[in-house]
Amino acid sequence: MTFPILFAVVIVGIQLFITISGKDAWPFSSYNMFSAPLDLTEFGVFRVALERQDGEIVWWRSHFYRYPEQVGKRIRGLRQLENDTPKTRMVVALETRKLLIEVARLIQQEEGGLESYQAFHIIERKPGIDRNNEIIIDDKTVARIPFLDLTSQFGEPNS
């Protein structure tokens, strides 16, 4: 009977430690999702949109729908870094570019090519409250990056 008790103590001990510390040690987790407050008013959500050849702008959507969220989070992180020094601006621009090259790679993998698009748009979405106490969304394009600027690094689309 000693082994089961020791084994149970170890498993419960790890779970207790993880819960109290609030840390994760895969596969043990403190499941801290939805616990931190979100400040959507100071920095909104950033999304990548695509400008088609005819000028229409559509959201980038992936079958693996968390990709756009993850890219948006990283863009948000970069934007929060941004200040007026030329060095930071350059780092933010380069990192954003690197990220968009990966987005282009994913679009190419999922859609088979990039020919139907001509530019990326980075759009900041901020929620607000209108006079009727309804939530309204304010979308603002903060950057437009033509595909031609990226393809030199990314390589030609496989058309």
Binding site: P4, Q15, T19, G22, S30, N32, F34, A36
Partner: peptide, 25 residues
């Protein structure tokens, strides 16, 4: 005991999720 231990692991998932919410907010 193995099944009780597995139930404890399920309990930890929910309980910890609740505790983290209380801890932060």
């Amino acid at each position: 005991w193995p099944l009780v231990l597995i139930k404890i692991c399920i309990v930890q998932m929910y309980l910890s999720a609740g505790i983290q919410k209380l801890r932060r907010c």
